[in-house]
Amino acid sequence: MTLAIDVSGLDKSFGDKHVVKDVAIQVEQGHICGFLGPNGSGKTTTLRMLCGLLTPDSGSGEVLGLDFPSRAEEIKRRTGYMTQRFSLYEDLTIEENLTFVARVYSLDRARDRVDESLEKLGLQHRRRQLAGQLSGGWKQRLALAASILHEPRLLLLDEPTAGVDPQARRDFWHEIHGLADAGMTVLVSTHYMDEAERCHEIAYIFNGELIARGTAEEVIAESGLVTYEAVGPRADRLASELAGARGVAMVAPFGQALHVSGTDRKALESAIAPHRREPYRWAEVPPTLEDVFIRLMGRAQAERTAAA
């Protein structure tokens, strides 16, 4: 097993704000690692440090077998980075954007590569259209094509599918898997749980600290969470009665159903006992990633408050 990213002790502060705290990331080559966490938890900052856009305050290791961060320039050359916001030139055409990228990376066969890329995108006939006129889904595909034009061995994607429709998202993930099969390592930040489940492994960061890591199954199993689901007409109304009850760590409505979770099975069962009556039907369900993350977040928050 070769690690494409093996970095530990990553730290970054902006002024007195400690944004990333002692984060360690390991991603196996050819794997897709989902990088999760609430807004402002330090995901973008971590990605930017990995691709050399930000200088870490501390942290060391290897990226693509190169010493990090001393060889950041070489790492940069072998890494593709797709920003959160569309950041190609809106006033250049699709083709001009790709050509620019090819030339900035001093790629050989630049013209052929651009042609191939356009063909793969299915944009040959729209190559002279301004990039700014593309729809959200197409912009995202173009940005991906631009970030892999130089055939990087590591691809960093920062919330690539924000604001993109489900079909485009599915196509996008299909493409990402194709790239990973070909040996590219992908680190992708996202807020979508379905996307997290499409990753080989996930890393969850909260308030700058890495609080969970592994495959989706591992993360769920390690949480020790027990979840019951109540189904019935307006079962979600039970939420307010159950929230805060002893043994209930969290309640989460899912449409007309309700998920009630806790780490202590006995306490949880006695908490829901009074509500196990008609018209509600209760059943134990496997906790979802979302249940686990909300739980992890709540616990991390509680620990911080306790420490403070």
């Binding site: 691709c51 856009l53 320039e73 890494t79 980075y81 920003t83 950041s87 990376y105 001093s106």
Partner: peptide, 8 residues
């Protein structure tokens, strides 16, 4: 600029 800076 962010994209530009991520290139060599």
């Amino acid at each position: 600029m962010e994209t530009l800076l991520s290139t060599p």
